[in-house]
Design a protein around this nucleic acid. Sequence first.
DNA 1: TAGGCCATCTGGTCCT
DNA 2: AGGACCAGATGGCCTA
Length: 176
Amino acid sequence: MPAEAPGSGDGAEPGAPRERRRRRGRARARTEALLHTLKRSRRVKANDRERNRMHHLNAALDELRSVLPTFPDDTKLTKIETLRFAYNYIWALSETLRLAEQCLPPPPAFRGAAAPPSPGSDAGSWLSSASPSAPSLCASASGPSSPATSEDCAYAPAESLRGFRGLPAGPGAPLR
DNA sequence: TAGGCCATCTGGTCCT
DNA sequence: AGGACCAGATGGCCTA
Protein backbone atom coordinates (compact mmCIF):
# COMPACT_ATOMS: atom_id res chain seq x y z
CA MET A 1 0.00 0.00 0.00
CA PRO A 2 1.62 3.28 -1.10
CA ALA A 3 1.77 6.06 1.47
CA GLU A 4 -0.43 9.02 0.72
CA ALA A 5 1.33 12.14 -0.43
CA PRO A 6 1.29 15.04 2.01
CA GLY A 7 -1.54 17.50 1.49
CA SER A 8 -3.74 15.07 -0.34
CA GLY A 9 -5.88 14.10 2.62
CA ASP A 10 -9.66 14.31 2.59
CA GLY A 11 -10.93 17.60 3.83
CA ALA A 12 -11.65 20.93 2.22
CA GLU A 13 -12.70 19.54 -1.17
CA PRO A 14 -14.60 16.38 -0.62
CA GLY A 15 -14.27 14.07 -3.60
CA ALA A 16 -11.31 15.81 -5.27
CA PRO A 17 -8.47 14.04 -3.38
CA ARG A 18 -10.13 10.72 -3.97
CA GLU A 19 -10.34 11.45 -7.67
CA ARG A 20 -6.71 12.49 -7.66
CA ARG A 21 -5.78 9.23 -5.95
CA ARG A 22 -7.75 7.29 -8.48
CA ARG A 23 -6.04 9.08 -11.35
CA ARG A 24 -2.65 8.54 -9.80
CA GLY A 25 -3.44 4.87 -9.37
CA ARG A 26 -4.40 4.54 -12.99
CA ALA A 27 -1.24 6.34 -14.08
CA ARG A 28 0.85 4.06 -11.94
CA ALA A 29 -0.86 1.02 -13.39
CA ARG A 30 -0.19 2.36 -16.85
CA THR A 31 3.50 2.95 -16.19
CA GLU A 32 3.81 -0.45 -14.57
CA ALA A 33 2.21 -2.06 -17.57
CA LEU A 34 4.50 -0.05 -19.81
CA LEU A 35 7.50 -1.10 -17.77
CA HIS A 36 6.36 -4.67 -17.93
CA THR A 37 6.00 -4.63 -21.69
CA LEU A 38 9.34 -2.84 -21.99
CA LYS A 39 11.02 -5.45 -19.81
CA ARG A 40 9.24 -8.15 -21.73
CA SER A 41 10.35 -6.86 -25.11
CA ARG A 42 13.91 -6.51 -23.86
CA ARG A 43 13.77 -10.07 -22.60
CA VAL A 44 12.43 -11.32 -25.90
CA LYS A 45 15.22 -9.49 -27.72
CA ALA A 46 17.80 -10.89 -25.35
CA ASN A 47 16.41 -14.38 -25.85
CA ASP A 48 16.66 -13.90 -29.56
CA ARG A 49 20.28 -12.82 -29.32
CA GLU A 50 21.08 -15.69 -27.02
CA ARG A 51 19.48 -18.16 -29.39
CA ASN A 52 21.50 -16.69 -32.23
CA ARG A 53 24.67 -16.82 -30.23
CA MET A 54 24.13 -20.49 -29.46
CA HIS A 55 23.38 -21.19 -33.12
CA HIS A 56 26.67 -19.60 -34.08
CA LEU A 57 28.42 -21.62 -31.42
CA ASN A 58 26.83 -24.79 -32.75
CA ALA A 59 27.75 -23.88 -36.30
CA ALA A 60 31.34 -23.49 -35.23
CA LEU A 61 31.14 -26.81 -33.46
CA ASP A 62 29.78 -28.40 -36.62
CA GLU A 63 32.67 -26.97 -38.59
CA LEU A 64 35.03 -28.46 -36.07
CA ARG A 65 33.25 -31.81 -36.34
CA SER A 66 33.56 -31.74 -40.09
CA VAL A 67 37.35 -31.68 -39.96
CA LEU A 68 37.64 -34.41 -37.37
CA PRO A 69 37.96 -37.97 -38.61
CA THR A 70 35.29 -40.27 -37.22
CA PHE A 71 34.45 -43.87 -37.70
CA PRO A 72 32.00 -44.57 -39.21
CA ASP A 73 32.17 -41.39 -41.21
CA ASP A 74 28.64 -40.29 -40.40
CA THR A 75 29.10 -40.66 -36.66
CA LYS A 76 28.09 -37.47 -34.97
CA LEU A 77 30.17 -36.63 -31.97
CA THR A 78 28.50 -34.93 -29.05
CA LYS A 79 29.68 -31.48 -28.09
CA ILE A 80 31.91 -32.64 -25.31
CA GLU A 81 33.28 -35.46 -27.45
CA THR A 82 34.01 -33.03 -30.25
CA LEU A 83 36.00 -30.78 -27.97
CA ARG A 84 37.93 -33.61 -26.38
CA PHE A 85 38.55 -35.29 -29.69
CA ALA A 86 39.74 -32.03 -31.22
CA TYR A 87 42.09 -31.50 -28.34
CA ASN A 88 43.62 -34.94 -28.71
CA TYR A 89 43.60 -34.77 -32.48
CA ILE A 90 45.56 -31.54 -32.45
CA TRP A 91 47.91 -33.02 -29.96
CA ALA A 92 48.47 -36.08 -32.14
CA LEU A 93 48.98 -33.99 -35.25
CA SER A 94 51.57 -31.82 -33.59
CA GLU A 95 53.21 -34.89 -32.14
CA THR A 96 53.30 -36.44 -35.58
CA LEU A 97 54.84 -33.29 -36.95
CA ARG A 98 57.43 -33.24 -34.23
CA LEU A 99 58.38 -36.85 -34.79
CA ALA A 100 58.44 -36.41 -38.53
CA GLU A 101 60.89 -33.59 -38.11
CA GLN A 102 63.02 -35.83 -35.92
CA CYS A 103 62.99 -38.51 -38.54
CA LEU A 104 64.08 -36.27 -41.35
CA PRO A 105 65.82 -36.36 -43.71
CA PRO A 106 63.58 -38.80 -45.53
CA PRO A 107 64.90 -42.29 -46.20
CA PRO A 108 66.51 -43.10 -49.53
CA ALA A 109 63.90 -45.71 -50.33
CA PHE A 110 60.43 -46.34 -49.05
CA ARG A 111 60.06 -49.89 -47.80
CA GLY A 112 56.34 -49.67 -47.32
CA ALA A 113 54.20 -52.00 -45.27
CA ALA A 114 53.79 -49.71 -42.36
CA ALA A 115 51.56 -51.07 -39.65
CA PRO A 116 49.43 -48.30 -38.30
CA PRO A 117 48.29 -48.53 -34.73
CA SER A 118 45.44 -50.93 -34.48
CA PRO A 119 42.14 -49.10 -34.58
CA GLY A 120 40.61 -48.97 -31.21
CA SER A 121 43.72 -49.84 -29.29
CA ASP A 122 44.31 -46.28 -28.33
CA ALA A 123 41.07 -44.83 -29.50
CA GLY A 124 39.96 -44.22 -25.98
CA SER A 125 42.74 -41.79 -25.36
CA TRP A 126 41.55 -39.59 -28.17
CA LEU A 127 38.40 -38.71 -26.41
CA SER A 128 39.44 -39.03 -22.84
CA SER A 129 39.20 -35.97 -20.70
CA ALA A 130 42.72 -36.40 -19.54
CA SER A 131 45.71 -35.22 -21.47
CA PRO A 132 46.64 -37.44 -24.34
CA SER A 133 48.57 -40.38 -22.99
CA ALA A 134 50.96 -40.51 -25.88
CA PRO A 135 49.44 -42.82 -28.44
CA SER A 136 52.67 -43.78 -30.11
CA LEU A 137 52.45 -42.64 -33.65
CA CYS A 138 56.13 -42.86 -34.23
CA ALA A 139 57.66 -43.93 -31.00
CA SER A 140 60.77 -46.04 -31.04
CA ALA A 141 62.23 -47.07 -34.32
CA SER A 142 62.04 -50.74 -33.70
CA GLY A 143 59.82 -53.75 -34.04
CA PRO A 144 58.05 -54.91 -37.14
CA SER A 145 54.64 -53.84 -35.91
CA SER A 146 55.81 -50.43 -34.88
CA PRO A 147 54.86 -47.54 -37.12
CA ALA A 148 58.07 -45.98 -36.03
CA THR A 149 60.73 -46.82 -38.54
CA SER A 150 62.20 -43.79 -40.15
CA GLU A 151 60.39 -44.55 -43.39
CA ASP A 152 57.13 -44.93 -41.59
CA CYS A 153 57.75 -41.75 -39.75
CA ALA A 154 57.54 -39.72 -42.88
CA TYR A 155 54.44 -41.68 -43.66
CA ALA A 156 53.00 -41.47 -40.23
CA PRO A 157 50.40 -38.74 -40.45
CA ALA A 158 47.87 -40.20 -42.82
CA GLU A 159 48.30 -43.79 -41.82
CA SER A 160 48.48 -43.41 -38.11
CA LEU A 161 45.67 -40.93 -37.98
CA ARG A 162 43.48 -43.25 -39.92
CA GLY A 163 44.24 -45.83 -37.32
CA PHE A 164 43.00 -43.58 -34.58
CA ARG A 165 39.58 -42.96 -35.91
CA GLY A 166 36.67 -43.97 -33.87
CA LEU A 167 34.81 -43.59 -30.66
CA PRO A 168 36.14 -44.32 -27.24
CA ALA A 169 36.34 -47.92 -26.26
CA GLY A 170 38.50 -48.02 -23.23
CA PRO A 171 37.99 -47.03 -19.62
CA GLY A 172 38.23 -43.37 -18.89
CA ALA A 173 36.61 -42.46 -22.14
CA PRO A 174 33.48 -40.36 -22.06
CA LEU A 175 30.27 -42.27 -22.05
CA ARG A 176 28.47 -42.77 -25.28
C1' DT B 1 11.88 -45.65 -16.99
C1' DA B 2 16.34 -43.53 -16.06
C1' DG B 3 19.97 -41.14 -17.96
C1' DG B 4 22.25 -38.46 -21.55
C1' DC B 5 22.08 -34.78 -24.74
C1' DC B 6 20.22 -30.75 -26.45
C1' DA B 7 17.66 -26.23 -27.17
C1' DT B 8 15.70 -22.56 -24.99
C1' DC B 9 14.63 -19.28 -21.39
C1' DT B 10 16.19 -16.50 -17.73
C1' DG B 11 18.66 -13.47 -14.55
C1' DG B 12 23.15 -11.96 -13.31
C1' DT B 13 27.58 -9.93 -14.49
C1' DC B 14 30.91 -7.77 -17.35
C1' DC B 15 32.20 -4.89 -21.16
C1' DT B 16 31.82 -1.14 -24.57
C1' DA C 1 22.07 1.67 -21.77
C1' DG C 2 22.50 -2.17 -24.41
C1' DG C 3 24.89 -6.21 -25.94
C1' DA C 4 27.80 -10.32 -24.97
C1' DC C 5 28.71 -13.95 -22.12
C1' DC C 6 27.70 -17.24 -18.63
C1' DA C 7 25.52 -20.69 -15.71
C1' DG C 8 21.34 -22.70 -13.82
C1' DA C 9 16.65 -24.41 -14.67
C1' DT C 10 13.41 -26.71 -17.48
C1' DG C 11 11.34 -29.62 -20.77
C1' DG C 12 11.63 -32.55 -25.01
C1' DC C 13 13.66 -36.34 -27.48
C1' DC C 14 16.15 -40.54 -27.80
C1' DT C 15 18.26 -44.85 -26.34
C1' DA C 16 19.56 -48.76 -23.40
